[in-house]
Write a protein that binds this DNA or RNA. Structure first.
Lengths: 328, 328
DNA sequence: TTGTAAGCGTTATCAC
DNA sequence: GTGATAACGCTTACAA
């Protein structure tokens, strides 16, 4: 275009307040620059922070995001996927609610690339990003065991919105992978350390702080009570800490506490909370990166990215008191 | 349509995996069922939770949301608004980054309804939802003063991303309203209580926990140091508490602390944190409700919804020690 | 370099 | 009620 004409066109466009109609463009081209983000709850800092990272990476390559919440409900997830497909999103990043149900995701994968965030799904071919939760939990367990703890409780919401089933007949492989990986580490480490009934102190509760509170209160009412509690994540840890406090117990003297991810407040509790630090932000960044690469080359092999975790020991973890545990 | 034909069509649609093309529909109808949500940071629980509420209310009326982050940067906000307008969103819910800059929002308002969330903008006609931050802060200040505090510091990020200007020549009316309202309450209550230089202990820092930490550390190094600290919000409170701890001071014996909104962890610190509880979820719900009503009736008068706050006194607030304050 | 025409998958309109 | 046709605002291809 010649410089003069360009000027006049631009001027006219400005005068008429012209805005390119992306909707019409997308109709014509048959593709959009929208990425669907499907998470349990954008109000949960874990998903909030990873979504923020997705958004930043998406924006950098000219994409925007539409966010849908599922509350870990598989039907809500189905509806979300359908919605996004009807919107003709360029791709979908999803933290799936179920490890076993994949039909809707496989179907979506045929239309728009699906990237799994934080969790894996059985029988679904896709790019995936997740944290090394199992290694992180193993590390935490190792330290707890080294500190003499043998009655270590685990409180998690891994069972989904309906909450705990029969813990003893539960197949860990049916749980959402991020949670399941941690629980597997918990059980295997317990077993390897010679704990008699590793599932005795495993509590799976519905999601949320209050459910974790109840579950913890029950654990603490037992005799003997646990000498340490492993909280699966930051939200669960809120309930755990509150229950410990309300039971009149002290941390770490009466009970040690560790958490499976790092909440923003881990350093300001008394004592500070020991946590498995996950690269939450990177989870999102990598997910968008994988989606971008898939879009550029649909034929490339599926890729897993496992991001390392790091166990940070803080004051909430100490030696089990001699009175608490049988001598090793 | 006759029942038989209907059956066959539906069957064929399923067989061909037909998905209605929303993009084409929107081109044709000239409107979308998308709502733009513009916030500083979806990873911040305040915005995460209110966005969650927006999403729920939107979904209930068949809308979806596209989320854009601004980091309180006005240029990012401009770009976000432009993007959303080009997407032909049905409406925009925005927590604006500036109290004084309204041109892009006014322009948007001419095309798609704009609802202000948590903050107001000078010279912009629109529906607005915000919390009674001034009343909440006044209540907190009243209690602090009643407890004998006279050197009350205030730590806030209200100055935006670039951080604090000259606090003494700052016009509170230029600050983002939610923060500014609190600061106004702080200053007026201080003044009414006969505090000599109400701005002496006012610290405006760039946004984020670390900046709040630095600002607090500086405040605590003064002589005399403040006997109480008012943290504008949950993120700031994290930095404040950490700085107090690192300075070797005890709460509330050495310093009382209150926060201007309620973080998830307010009840699990030692002692628990006194906070002004804001109806964060309702903020989002009401914003979407206003947008929905505006869409239904574009001619209706602009509406403000002010949601009440509630000051909750917890252990982090106590009497100022006699040694800390001159007798009243 | 500029202009013209076709077509994306819908919805809306207008005959039938 | 049913079926054909135009139009939404853009991109792309091709002709002038």
């Amino acid at each position: 275009v010649s410089g003069a004409a360009r000027e006049r066109v631009l001027a006219a466009a400005a005068a008429l307040k012209y805005r390119p109609n992306v909707v019409a463009r997308d109709t014509r081209t048959g593709r959009t620059s929208t990425v669907g983000v499907v998470v349990a709850d954008i109000g949960n800092p874990f998903f909030g922070r990873s979504t923020r990272a997705i958004s930043d990476s998406a924006e950098a390559v000219g994409f925007k995001i539409v966010v849908v919440n599922t509350d870990e409900d598989i039907e809500a997830e189905r509806a979300a996927i359908r919605l996004l497909l009807e919107q003709r999103v360029a791709g979908i990043i999803v933290a799936p609610a179920s490890r076993n149900i994949s039909d809707h995701l496989s179907e979506a994968q045929a239309t728009a690339p699906v990237v799994l965030l934080d969790r894996r799904v059985r029988g679904l071919e896709s790019d995936r990003v997740f944290a090394g939760n199992e290694a992180g939990a193993r590390q935490a367990m190792r330290v707890l065991l080294e500190h003499g703890h043998r009655r270590i409780a685990y409180v998690s919401s891994a069972a989904g919105p309906r909450g705990a089933a029969d813990v003893h007949n539960l197949d860990v492989d049916d749980l959402i992978t991020s949670g399941g990986d941690r629980i597997r580490a918990y059980l295997e480490c317990s077993e390897a350390a010679g704990v008699t009934d590793p599932r005795a102190y495993l509590a799976l509760c519905p999601f949320g702080e209050d459910a974790a509170y109840e579950a913890t209160a029950e654990l603490l009412s037992r005799s003997p009570r646990p000498s340490a509690i492993f909280a699966s994540d930051g939200v669960i840890a809120l309930g755990v800490l509150r229950a410990i406090h309300d039971a009149g117990l002290r941390i770490p003297d009466d009970v040690s506490v560790v958490a499976g991810d790092e909440p923003s407040w881990s350093r300001i509790t008394t004592p500070p909370l020991s946590t498995v630090v996950q690269p939450v932000h990177d989870l999102g960044t990598e997910a968008m990166d994988l989606l971008w690469k898939r879009l550029a080359d649909p034929g490339r092999p599926w890729q897993d990215r496992v991001l390392p975790t790091r166990f940070v020991i803080r004051g909430s973890l100490s030696e089990a008191a001699a009175s608490q545990e049988a001598p090793r």
